[in-house]
Design a protein around this nucleic acid. Structure first.
Lengths: 218, 218
DNA sequence: GTCCGCTTGTGAAAACATTCACCTGCGGCG
DNA sequence: CGCCGCAGGTGAATGTTTTCACAAGCGGAC
């Protein structure tokens, strides 16, 4: 299979979500055009994205909602459960634990780590916070994904500890570029950067450097 | 000025961060090569990104750290303060308020809204939570940016209320596609999607559809 | 059975982003 | 002063992603 772009994967996530909604509405079929409309993309984009993985529709009719949903579910690897370790039990970490959509999509948090002695030993969401020194223990827990919600200064070190313990996927919330081996998947959620990007767009719209004001995103 | 791509803006944010670090380390000059290295991009990329906005370096020497930092600060519109309204005082909203980097970068939360009567009237981070029905009031507060941290079902409605009240930038944390007028800048932080993208990468690495396993991101 | 309207799947084209490669300018050294 | 090594700026080349446009398949009407 050709390399799948990150954008395509992100859109698949969106399609999946739309399909769940449409399914809940009781619709049985959907066309690429209607799907695209609800997603804010073009219908060609939808068809192209799906074509990387196979032929799921029927000409003249569109896609069977339930079938396509299951296909995408399988493509995204959501037809299984993933074991997640959370490092950093501060504000962001706690908010993530409280977010119920987490488990609903198949991601089970099985361990929590923190460096702060004041937090170690506390119980959050049914789990006892372990000392960060115990991170190598994730290997024995069969953890697939590590979530880093530490201050930026600690993030790289934590990432390395997680990778050394056999984790192959990292979701980073610390506003810092992380370096991991090529066989480790890394995604970063950086709120600071998004705010700065908004700032840029608004700034440009008000005082464009040379020509056209431009704002809109996504 | 040619249209600046979102990727370029994101990298500018990163450069800015690296420059702050380098400045703290006491360095006065930095080459595109060193800057690129710390960012995980190529030096040509750094130079190209900067060239969209002007000539900030000196051949043979590199860039003056402090000067470049100030230039980027100005490009990103961080040389002023932005007024922010937060809608949704749940877990995510509270975590955002607790995040001190927010104000440090020039973003001041000046109002908080929530629909839940149990939360309205409570005081968070020095602000009294207002009823969501009062969102039109952001116009009088001179709010530039609205942050949406509501459940997905309410997000579109809130976005429309914010836009109607004159907000020109929206940062959305709800896992749902939002539609806003073209003159409104929108950025979405979607944790669910990032997790699904990780799931895809790990899934592919373990059971590639046809050929090469592939994982790494960013 | 044939025609018709609809919609997928997909090469080809266009748009966009990144990387290359080189010209130019700078400071330092002898 | 002239040469050398370094490093920025930038047009051209390359690579990637999106959009276009159309052939082909499908069900339904008659």
């Amino acid at each position: 299979m050709a390399r799948i772009s990150e954008s395509t994967v992100r859109r698949l996530s969106h399609y999946y979500r739309v399909l769940e909604e449409v399914h809940a509405e009781g619709k049985r079929m959907i066309s690429s055009h209607r799907l695209a409309e609800r997603e804010g993309v073009t219908s060609a984009q939808v068809r192209k994205d799906l074509s990387y993985f196979g032929s799921f529709g029927r000409r003249g009719l569109g896609y069977k909602v339930e079938h396509l949903r299951e296909e995408i579910r399988s493509i995204l690897g959501l037809d299984r459960r993933w074991r997640v370790a959370l490092v950093g039990a501060g504000h962001i970490g706690s908010a993530l634990l409280a977010y119920r959509g987490f488990a609903a999509q198949g991601f089970d948090v099985v361990a929590i780590y923190d460096r702060d002695p004041g937090r170690v030993g506390q119980k959050i969401a049914g789990l006892v916070v372990q000392d960060a020194a115990a991170i190598p223990g994730v290997a024995a827990l069969g953890v697939d994904i590590g979530v880093i919600a530490t201050p930026p200064a600690a993030a790289q070190e934590v990432a390395e500890a997680l990778v050394a313990a056999g984790v192959h996927g990292i979701l980073n919330f610390a506003p810092r570029k992380l370096f991991v081996p090529a066989n480790v998947a890394l995604r970063t959620v950086d709120m600071t950067m998004e705010l700065e990007s908004l700032s840029f767009a608004l700034h440009q719209a008000r005082a464009p450097r040379r020509r056209r004001a431009r704002a809109g995103g996504e």
